[in-house]
Amino acid sequence: MTSILTNMAAMSALQTLRTISSGMEETQGRVSSGMRVGEASDNAAYWSIATTMRSDNMALSAVSDALGLGASKVDTAYAGMESAIEVVKEIKAKLVTATEEGVDKAKVQEEISQLQEQLMAIAESASFSGENWIAGGVGTDTTAVDVTVVSGFVRDANNNVSVKTTSYNLNATAQAAAGDPQMTLLFGGDATGVIDEATGILGSVATDWALVDFDQSTAGVQAAAGAVSGESVYTLDITNYTNTDMAEALTLVDAALAAMTSAGAELGSISTRIELQEDFVNKLSDSLDSGVGRLVDADMNEESTRLKALQTQQQLAVQSLSIANSSTEVILSLFR
Results as ranks from 00 to 15, higher is better:
D141A: 07
V228H: 01
N160M: 13
D180V: 07
V212Y: 01
N159T: 03
A219D: 14
M120A: 13
I122E: 13
A174Y: 08
T235D: 11
K164Q: 15
L211C: 07
A172R: 00
S162Y: 09
A178N: 08
V150R: 07
G189N: 00
T242H: 02
D215K: 12
F128V: 08
N243M: 15
V147K: 12
D156E: 09
A219I: 11
N171M: 04
L202T: 09
T199D: 05
I195R: 02
T207W: 00
G130A: 14
M183D: 01
F187G: 00
F153I: 09
G226R: 08
A123W: 09
T166I: 15
A121R: 13
S127N: 15
Y241P: 06
P181E: 11
N240P: 03
V221K: 08
D190E: 06
D215A: 14
T140M: 00
D237Q: 07
S232I: 06
Y168M: 09
Y234D: 08
V150Y: 02
I195D: 02
L185W: 04
V147M: 09
Q175V: 10
A177Q: 12
I134Q: 05
R155Y: 09
G230T: 13
T165V: 15
A227H: 06
W209E: 07
A135Q: 02
A172Q: 00
A177K: 11
T242E: 02
Q175K: 10
L211W: 11
Y241F: 15
I238V: 15
S204P: 08
A121G: 09
M120R: 12
A178Q: 05
M183Q: 10
G130R: 13
A126D: 10
W209L: 08
E231R: 10
K164N: 14
L202P: 07
T184P: 00
G136Y: 00
D180L: 05
V194M: 09
V150W: 05
N243P: 04
S217C: 01
V163F: 04
T166K: 14
N159L: 07
I195Y: 03
A225S: 14
V150L: 09
Q182V: 05
N169T: 03
L170T: 08
T165I: 05
A210P: 03
A176Q: 12
L236E: 05
Q175L: 05
F153Y: 15
D156Q: 06
A135V: 03
T148Q: 14
T140R: 03
V154D: 11
E124A: 14
T184Q: 01
S229I: 05
A177N: 15
V221Y: 10
A225E: 12
A178R: 04
L211T: 11
D237A: 08
A157E: 14
N159H: 10
A126V: 03
W133A: 02
V154T: 15
T242A: 01
V145I: 12
A178C: 03
V145W: 00
K164H: 06
A178I: 12
G188H: 01
T184D: 00
S167G: 13
A157D: 13
E124V: 08
S125R: 12
D180K: 01
V163Q: 14
A123F: 09
E231Y: 08
D215W: 07
V149G: 02
V163Y: 06
D180P: 07
V154P: 03
T142W: 11
G139V: 02
A227D: 13
